[in-house]
Write a protein that binds this DNA or RNA. Structure first.
Length: 479
DNA sequence: TTGGATT
């Protein structure tokens, strides 16, 4: 038996699923029509409704824009009181858009002092599929500037430049378009395409995080703040730092660089750089052979008291028990980086002793970390180090880093001097290449000072590290 | 050549 539905669509089977626009909006079985809605139907939030209006009163008002799929006045869960708002879903997406443009803030219902609100409900994904995060803006770019940048791609519903407490732009913004397509078009044209004045890299245009991603990030942040990363990370890191940056070639010879460290497994680094600590005190280079001869191989780690300081800070409160006749003169991690601590050519130089001592520590106790790792059998996954600034006087700016250095290498290099709460090498987003500078934050100023003392002027290859306190944020800012 | 950021 054929059925003619309200839409005039005739079907042999008595089912009708399309409206005049060819979209699904109702399922008619015999005489009964079960309302169906578009797959992309929009749930609208209706606000500023007088509390005496119920569904039956509201229906006529909204039906003029299309068939209603669902209309629910919001009631207090406990008291059942009318909350002055409702959710409304039309069968057709089109109807919702029409209602929104015809009604939203266009009229005020009797007894209300603000105009009616008709807009997609928050539950509709909060617009995140059309909201963009814009990064690498110039710090002086205003909302208007950002709007101008984006206006040709569609209708901008929202544009906010993120600002710190002092009102200074954080160099990023959110831009919400009225549709996903517009947002996507903006990404396609603008992302990476230009570099704003004062920005360090090309413009970033991407979809803003979803709620889920945001929650995840928050959790990571919390975890980072609470220091919930593996203690072994730190200890391994320290160990790795010494073995990386510190492995002395006793004979002053090049050693082959292998890339394994216990801290990070196989690292990406394959540096052939040569480390030399410049003699910053006397302003002169200390001869390599002189330094080397002053560091006799085979010196006992335990006999070098000064290594206790940097090591202790990193959680090595004690050296492992002297053991077992392992060879101590060969670095187990020979990575081609040769620090030549040269503050003084004598063996009493603390830094040199630290280097030497740690080298021997690394050489003599390769199993040192094993018992510790067994003591923490279920370490949580390492949470990626977020950018964290330390207190005033604890943050270092490091320039002339080797191109190959990444965050991990930077951290390893500075771990000997204290608790590194953050190590960040700046990377050019376009090329993914290091910009050869970075930041290291300690949790206390003396570690930072110790690091400056030891590492400023440190020669790597043809370059010398520049290690100094990071400029405070407000420095050099025009007022 | 001074922190790559968030709703």
């Amino acid at each position: 038996m054929a059925t003619v539905t309200a839409n005039g669509v005739q079907q042999e089977n008595g089912f009708s699923t399309t409206n005049s626009a060819g979209r699904m909006n109702g399922l008619t079985i015999g005489q009964n029509t079960i309302p169906m809605k578009d797959h992309d139907a929009i749930k609208l939030f209706i606000g500023q409704i007088p509390r005496n209006l119920e569904e039956k009163d509201l229906k006529p008002l909204f039906e003029e824009f299309g068939k209603i799929y669902e209309l629910t006045v919001l009631k207090d869960r406990f008291t059942g009181m009318h909350k002055g708002c409702a959710f409304l879903t039309y069968c057709a997406r089109e109807s919702a858009l029409k209602a929104q443009s015809a009604l939203h803030e266009q009229k005020t219902l009797p007894g209300m002092n603000r105009p009616i609100q008709v807009k997609p409900a928050d539950s509709e994904g909060r617009g995140e599929d059309r909201k963009l995060f814009v990064g690498m803006l110039g710090k002086q770019q205003s909302e208007d500037d950002v709007r101008r940048l984006f206006e040709s791609f569609g209708q901008i519903e929202e544009c906010t430049v993120l600002r710190g407490p002092d009102g200074a732009s954080k160099g990023c913004a959110f831009v919400k378009f009225s549709s996903h397509g517009e947002a996507q078009a903006a990404i396609n044209s603008l992302h990476g395409g230009q570099t704003m004045p004062g920005a360090s890299s090309s413009l970033v245009v991407k979809f803003a995080d979803t709620d889920k991603e945001r929650t995840l990030r928050r959790m990571h942040q919390m975890a980072g703040q609470l220091g919930i990363f593996s203690p072994m990370t730190i200890q391994f890191g320290a160990y790795g730092a010494y073995s990386h940056a510190v492995s002395l070639s006793p004979a002053g010879e090049e050693t082959t660089f292998t890339t394994q460290t216990p801290a990070f497994g196989c690292t990406s680094s394959s540096m052939s750089a040569e480390f030399q600590k410049a003699d910053s005190v006397q302003g002169q280079e200390v001869g390599r052979s002189k330094r080397c001869t002053s560091t006799p191989p085979g010196i006992s780690a335990a006999a070098v008291p000064s290594i206790a300081a940097p090591i202790g800070v990193n959680g090595f409160s004690a050296l492992p028990p002297q053991s077992n006749g392992q060879p101590t003169s060969e670095p187990i991690y020979t990575n081609g980086i040769h620090p030549y601590p040269a503050q003084s050519p004598t063996v009493t130089d603390p830094l040199q002793q630290a280097y030497a001592g740690v080298q021997h520590y690394a050489a003599a106790y390769p199993a040192a970390y094993a018992p510790i790792s067994q003591a923490f059998p279920q370490q949580p996954t390492i949470i990626p180090q977020q950018q964290r600034e330390g207190p005033e006087g604890c943050n270092l700016f490091i320039y002339h880093l080797p191109q190959e250095f990444g965050d991990a290498e930077l951290m390893q290099m500075f771990l000997p001097f204290g608790n590194v709460i953050s190590a960040k090498v700046f990377v050019d987003r376009a090329t993914n290449q290091s910009k050869c500078f970075g930041f290291v934050s300690f949790d206390n100023p003396s570690s930072a000072q110790a690091a400056i003392q030891a590492m400023n002027g440190f020669q790597i290859g043809m370059k010398r590290l520049k290690v100094q306190l990071k400029r405070p944020k407000d420095a050099n800012r025009p007022y």
